[in-house]
């Protein structure tokens, strides 16, 4: 088996890992798996295509607009998800609320970009050769971003008081409030940060992979799968799960053909759910 397959898997795995990390960032204070998260990926890809690909804007300017747009999307998403959750009082309101948000954003992208796939040129058109295998700088950027986001999130949670309060909010928002922790602003910030992260990877990855305006849910499901395999809520789990399904997909594709890639991902998910229901690094989620 050639090294190339593993490098391609590492890239795809990094994309899934960042998506899972961005979902983890939202999950940590809220215990909500946001099914609309993948729409942030589409936002990044769409803006990359529009600003860099079509309008030929300089990179820095495009990135600034991207971050602002993603922050705005995260802000809106928080209202779309948390408002119904708070108003209904139901434990399961988040499922329908996040799916509804996903559908709304997806429709918006479809209206603007009917029959378009978001692909544009590499930002840096350069390849690195590793023992005869090719790794483009664009892919390398995604892999590096994955490492940075992982370390930042992991250290933030473990080492800072803010990180510890995020875990506290997940456990009990009322008790966090009486200790003086601003629970609602923290949750808003989690949605905003998570959306910026996923929009950035959408922006960086879309020159390499084919992204359609309606593909948000696909990326959500990949991130969701990665998070479950690794253990929901754990940054380490998001990375391990993401890399596992990325590499598995790449290896199986080259071995049995393209259609088997997705099958193998969900097959592994099913097996892991039976053997390790909480994923590799997940803790049993205790009921409130």
């Amino acid at each position: 088996m050639s090294l190339q397959i593993w490098i391609d898997g590492l890239f795809a795995g990094s994309v899934f890992a960042i998506i899972a990390l961005s979902m983890t960032i939202v999950y940590q204070p809220t215990r909500i798996m946001n099914f609309a998260q993948g729409e942030g990926f589409i936002l990044g890809a769409a803006l990359g295509y529009q600003l860099v690909g079509v309008w030929k804007w300089p990179l820095i300017q495009s990135l600034v607009v991207l971050v602002i747009a993603a922050a705005l999307m995260g802000f809106i998403m928080e209202r779309m998800v948390m408002l119904p959750v708070q108003l209904s009082g139901s434990k399961f309101a988040w499922i329908i609320a996040t799916l509804a948000a996903a559908m709304i954003f997806q429709s918006a992208f479809n209206i603007k970009y009917v029959n378009v796939t978001f692909s544009y040129f590499d930002l840096i058109e350069k390849d690195i050769s590793i023992f005869g295998a090719k790794l483009s700088v664009q892919k390398l950027l995604v892999i590096l971003m994955m490492i940075i986001v992982f370390i930042a999130n992991d250290q933030f949670l473990k080492r800072t008081l803010w990180g510890r309060s995020i875990r506290a909010i997940a456990h009990n928002p009322d008790t966090s409030t009486i200790l003086g922790i601003p629970t609602k602003p923290v949750i808003k910030l989690a949605f905003i940060t998570g959306t910026i992260v996923i929009a950035l990877v959408g922006f960086l990855a879309s020159p390499v992979i084919i992204v359609a305006p309606a593909a948000g849910l696909f990326f959500t499901i990949q991130g969701f799968t990665a998070a479950i395999i690794g253990g929901v809520g754990s940054p380490k789990g998001a990375v391990v799960g993401g890399l596992m399904i990325g590499i598995l997909d790449s290896v199986v594709r080259s071995w049995l053909g393209g259609t088997w890639g997705l099958f193998s991902t969900f097959f592994v998910l099913a097996v892991i759910l039976i053997l390790k229901p909480n994923g590799f690094f997940g803790k049993r989620v205790e009921g409130r």
Binding site: L161, A168, T175, I181, K283
Partner: peptide, 29 residues
């Protein structure tokens, strides 16, 4: 959350400590 800073402390019903945090982390919170 702003009332805590004003000086109102509250030990809630059922203690509500954070079970996954260490004792010291609970205090630091």
């Amino acid at each position: 959350h702003k009332r805590t800073a004003l000086g109102i402390g509250h030990v809630p019903e059922g203690r509500q400590i954070f079970p996954d945090h260490t004792v010291e982390e609970n205090l630091q919170l």
